[in-house]
């Protein structure tokens, strides 16, 4: 294939040439698609992209548009840009309020704080679990993996509800502790930050374990032998070699926990108290209680920008690091 560089087919690139060679017959549709610059491979990739454009990018632009509108008592409850004949952009009401009203900044910071603490807790609990799984016998490994995935077979909402039954004042935990005689009056666990942390930790732990496990499982164990051979004690080798090499897994797991935890609504709503003000909950109240769609949209856009931009930069940096490591 490399020798026929004069062939006109080469002009379309190596990948396309390969595919055309595999399919000597060119149907009418296939030829048309090729003319449009779409090889079969590109067509396959196109489907998810169209899906994401329709159901993510388009709604995103609708939200972006609403965030710049004025709130009105109408159906839908916001103005359109050209209603009065000239362009009317509202920044002070929606975005201005995000800065002037401490509620938004506080709930945003609180959400980040709680998500960060939960991520660290997930890592501290998930790393030993993933490590144990990766070093278990291959036959045991699959059973352990199954056990981690098992909770997904029940709805997320139901599992969070179940925690209410466990944590409330006359719930399972308090009843058992009182029956055994450890405590005389019920512990107040429901509607506290503790319950929220517990809920997030419980719900998101598999998202930490799975990427860590995938990473630790494929680690070359002879590296640890090499470290020991060169005089490195096992505990030090664990940090210098194992943890260092599992950084991509740690970052992947941390992102999978941190990002959804920041915007988490269900867990603080069901398990948290009035003081648990997270940005997802604020957004919900803005939208459904206050019916202030422009402000709710502005909150959504703000979360997105404040989360996505630093993460995108971090991801780029991480990609470079991983490239260097492999």
């Amino acid at each position: 294939m490399a020798s026929d560089s004069t062939s006109p087919l080469r002009a379309g690139g190596v990948g396309k040439t390969g595919i055309t060679r595999l399919m000597p017959f060119s149907t009418g549709l296939h030829a048309l698609l090729l003319k449009l610059g779409l090889s079969s491979r590109n067509c396959v990739i196109l489907v998810p992209y169209i899906w994401l454009t329709l159901f993510f990018l388009v709604p995103f632009f609708i939200v972006l548009k609403i965030s710049f509108a004025y709130m009105t008592i109408a159906q839908p409850p916001f103005t359109h840009f050209s209603e009065t004949g000239h362009l009317s952009l509202n920044i002070s009401d929606s975005y201005g309020r995000l800065i002037s009203d401490r509620l938004y900044i506080d709930s945003y910071l609180n959400a980040i704080k709680m998500a960060a603490i939960s991520t660290v807790l997930c890592l501290l609990l998930g790393y030993p679990m993933a490590y144990g799984m990766a070093r278990a016998k291959p036959s045991t490994r699959n059973i352990l993996l199954m056990l981690v995935i098992l909770p997904f077979w029940t709805s997320f909402l139901i599992r969070v509800y179940a925690w209410i039954g466990l944590l409330k004042n006359n719930g399972v935990i308090n009843n058992i502790l009182m029956a055994v005689g450890v405590i005389n009056e019920p512990l107040h666990m429901m509607n506290t930050n503790f319950a929220v942390y517990l809920g997030i930790l419980y719900s998101y732990l598999p998202f930490m374990i799975l990427p860590l496990y995938a990473n630790l499982e494929k680690m070359d164990l002879s590296l640890l032998e090499a470290a020991a051979d060169l005089g490195c004690k096992p505990l030090k080798a664990f940090f210098v070699i194992t943890v260092r090499l599992s950084l991509p897994g740690i970052v992947a797991g941390a992102m999978l926990v941190f990002i959804p935890a920041v915007g988490e609504y269900v867990i603080p709503e069901l398990l948290g108290g009035p003081s648990t003000q997270m940005i997802g909950r604020t957004l919900y109240n803005e939208f459904f209680s206050n019916r202030d769609w422009p402000t709710a949209s502005a909150v959504a856009i703000a979360i997105l920008i404040l989360l996505v931009v630093p993460l995108a930069i971090f991801q780029r940096y991480q990609d470079k690091q991983m490239e260097a490591a492999e």
Partner: peptide, 20 residues
């Protein structure tokens, strides 16, 4: 005597170089 205290060094078949 554990490997990290032995007066030996090994060259591994896979080389086992630290990739990072």
């Amino acid at each position: 005597i554990p490997p990290y205290e032995r007066p030996t060094n090994m060259m591994f078949q896979s080389y086992a170089l630290f990739p990072h």
